[in-house]
Write a protein that binds this DNA or RNA. Structure first.
Lengths: 248, 248
DNA sequence: CGCCTTCTTGAGGGGCGTCAAGCCCAGTGG
DNA sequence: CCACTGGGCTTGACGCCCCTCAAGAAGGCG
């Protein structure tokens, strides 16, 4: 296997911290050659933050970008009187940050414990300008986020409370493991956030979220354990509930 | 002015149809040099379509991209039972289409009479791959659309009907002329769509839109002529109404 | 003039928000 | 060990905002 040896030799140029990183395979760092990885790696800091840690805040200067290595980050907006809306959830190996803007437009907060690989704004933007393939990857992620945001606009604007909660559960399931989208098996998931966050994501109150969860439970679409663990015996039935009013 | 002459000489290489086009200044075509403009221009078709013309449809193959030269295009999503949500409005000189995807994720429809400059998917994507600056412009537009989508998610999820209608009017005013954002003058606008579209954009019914418009009128925030013409004596008062419940 | 579409206005009902009480559990301190 | 506290969650009672249903006005067009 001369090939494997060649691969190993090649690997040896890649920074140690990057070798096992998912962002190098499915994330944006896959666009970088070993030399660029080294350059960026020099400025990169890996860190682990607890849930509720704020990564950056709306209207503030952006100083660092990050890759999510594990965990969930929520992006939110708040009105002056305190009303809040979560406008995006990001999972590994997503890129976090708003390129080409001095100010952040959302607040980013760890929803769970999150492992991050973070680097200064300037270091990344320099490499972007030299690497069209990197900008292409960032562009693809922006387009993916735009698709997701627009899907969610339909949920926010036109679905009932029961459909919204089902849509949330379906989103979580398919983001934890995309293959579960069309499995026949029973699936068990841990909700990455508390009821208040779910309410802010769905444009509801915590009471309504709670009521609709027990509504789905009573209809046999889900089962709930320990308040955070949800069991879904039939994903297709859950999907049906995302578009068909079950409030009666 | 030798400079002007040089500019004129330079201009002579630019396709005639592109010379006065806004997309060459503020739109994506500004990233192209005269040679590339010529290449793309060979495949470009200018057309004028009436309102309610469908440009492309969700889940269908994308064949052409377009620049909006004038008019308004609405992007929408529909559920199987007919519930509909408008997820974006696009104005000149915006680019219309979803790059890097075979299928469209939304339906695009002319909201008003629209002038378009349209070209085949392949022709543009070839030039994109050769022109990093073009991909950068498209990326910037995607990010702008993402910012707008997320702003609108806050409107859909957390605002009252009165705030939503005020938000819609404010959005239209600032998109027709960004300078009106902080003018002290009275402003008069023509709504680019009918009540049913406004309702689909706001996640409301047409009756509620109508009632909230008269609500804003009775409070002196707007005046209405001929159903489609709205007069706004004080933009700042309108802006205040986008975040402060006036339903009582 | 008649017909159609668009829009407004009213009456009534329901879905979700508001307010409140209480359960469960982890953490803390006596 | 247990009392106390506080956060997270559920459940019930009630009210209101917006939806539904319906009628009618206004304007465009043959």
């Amino acid at each position: 296997m001369a090939n494997e040896e060649r691969l190993d030799i090649h690997n040896s140029e890649i920074p140690v911290v990057c070798r096992a990183c998912e962002a190098r395979h499915r994330g944006i760092c896959g666009a970088l050659d070993p030399e660029q990885l080294q350059k960026l790696g020099k400025h990169a800091i890996r860190k682990v933050v607890d849930d509720a840690t704020e990564l950056y805040s709306a209207d503030q200067e952006i100083e660092r970008y990050s890759n999510i290595m594990s965990g969930v980050v929520k992006l939110s907006k708040m009105m002056s009187d305190g009303r809040q809306q979560i406008v995006g959830l990001q999972f590994a190996p997503d890129f976090v940050g708003r390129p080409f803007s001095r100010q952040a437009k959302t607040t980013a907060e760890a929803a769970t414990t999150v492992r991050l690989c973070s680097f200064p704004k300037n270091a990344l933007e320099k490499i972007i300008s030299e690497t069209p393939e990197l900008e292409h990857r960032l562009h693809e992620q922006s387009l993916k986020e735009l698709d997701e945001a627009r899907d969610w606009m339909l949920t926010l604007g036109r679905k009932t409370a029961a459909e919204k909660v089902a849509s949330f559960l379906h989103l979580i399931v398919t983001h934890i493991n995309p293959e579960w989208e069309d499995t026949e098996d029973t699936v068990e998931i841990e909700l990455p956030m508390k009821r208040a966050d779910i309410a802010d994501f769905l444009g509801l109150t915590i009471e309504t979220v709670s009521r609709q969860l027990t509504n789905l439970r009573k209809r046999g679409i889900i089962d709930i354990r320990d308040r955070r663990i949800v069991i879904i015996p039939d994903i297709h039935k859950l999907f049906a509930a995302t578009q068909q009013d079950l409030s009666n």
